[in-house]
């Protein structure tokens, strides 16, 4: 049970309640978050537009066709970044869920809530572009191999999270349920990553992130990394802007509620 410390002198021991206020809790103040994110967001957006403005035309027009895949290799400049964002974003969601569940960080709840629709979009685009690559290369839009199936499960986990956090009237309860789902679903991320090594799949094994030298020529690797960076910056800017909007909407609801209470009071 919590008791108030009534001593006037300096406390001989650090107060337990003061400990979680440092570190990431500095950013739990909505005013401070809005100020800081307001300064970061324009730079993040400008960097995303600039890097994508270089990376997308590079991949689409200036990189050479592959000796086996021909022009279809250009799909990989958008497909691979979407796959990275689908997995990396989910790792971010799991981290935010840990912050939310253990440290009850109020902004982590909102960030996770705003992250899941963007993550679901990236995963859907990964599946769609993979399918568009698969038809001319494999001769089929879809196969039930371990990589494709685990990414489809990841897509349902993103959708499930987005739906679950919005399904409760009590937003805190919704955030807790969403965090539990995100942490359970995090088991799927290493399955997606290593599925091509653990099982015999039609999907090729990792080319860029394998140990040792990447299995791609620099003419393909550099535009791919540029597009990867550009889409990561765009993803971060979208999530940050959505979180800012959510913080402002929460403040609006609080102000409207306070105004309604004042109007009801005799």
């Amino acid at each position: 049970m919590d008791t108030a410390d009534t001593r006037t002198g300096p406390s001989p021991l650090p107060l337990p309640a003061a400990a979680p206020r440092g570190g990431l809790h500095r950013f739990a103040n909505p005013g401070r978050f809005l100020r800081l994110s307001g300064q970061v967001l324009p730079w993040l957006t400008a960097a995303a537009v600039l890097v994508l403005g270089i990376g997308l035309p590079w991949g689409l027009f200036f990189s050479p066709p592959d000796w086996q895949q021909g022009e279809t290799v250009r799909i990989l400049y958008v497909h691979v970044p979407m796959a990275w964002l689908a997995m990396g974003g989910y790792a971010g969601l799991a981290l935010g869920s840990v912050l939310s569940l253990i440290w009850r960080h109020p902004l982590a709840d909102l960030a996770c809530r705003e992250l899941s629709p963007v993550g679901a979009l990236a995963t859907a685009l990964c599946l769609a572009t993979g399918s568009l690559w698969g038809k001319p290369m494999w001769g089929t839009w879809w196969v039930w191999d371990a990589r494709l199936t685990s990414v489809l499960v990841l897509f349902f986990l993103w959708l499930g999270h987005a739906a679950l956090v919005r399904a409760f009237d009590d937003t805190e309860r919704g955030a807790r349920m969403g965090a539990i789902l995100a942490l359970i679903g995090a088991v799927n991320v290493p399955i997606v990553k290593f599925s091509v090594d653990w099982w015999n799949t039609l999907h090729q094994p990792a080319s860029v992130t394998r140990l040792g030298a990447p299995g791609l020529h620099v003419d393909i690797l550099y535009p791919l990394l540029t597009c990867g960076l550009g889409f990561t910056l765009a993803f971060a800017a979208l999530v940050l802007a959505r979180t800012r909007a959510a913080v402002m909407e929460r403040r609006i609801r609080a102000l409207q509620l306070a105004a309604a209470r004042r109007a009801e009071a005799p």
């Binding site: 997308l56 689409l60 021909g70 022009e71 279809t72 250009r74 799909i75 958008v78 497909h79 979407m82 979009l121 859907a124 685009l125 769609a128 572009t129 568009l132 690559w133 038809k135 001319p136 889409f231 765009a234 979208l238």
Partner: peptide
Amino acid sequence: HWIHVTASYALVCGGF
């Protein structure tokens, strides 16, 4: 091949 490439870029850029 180019139809598939164009559709992929349009989907991703349009979605974002």
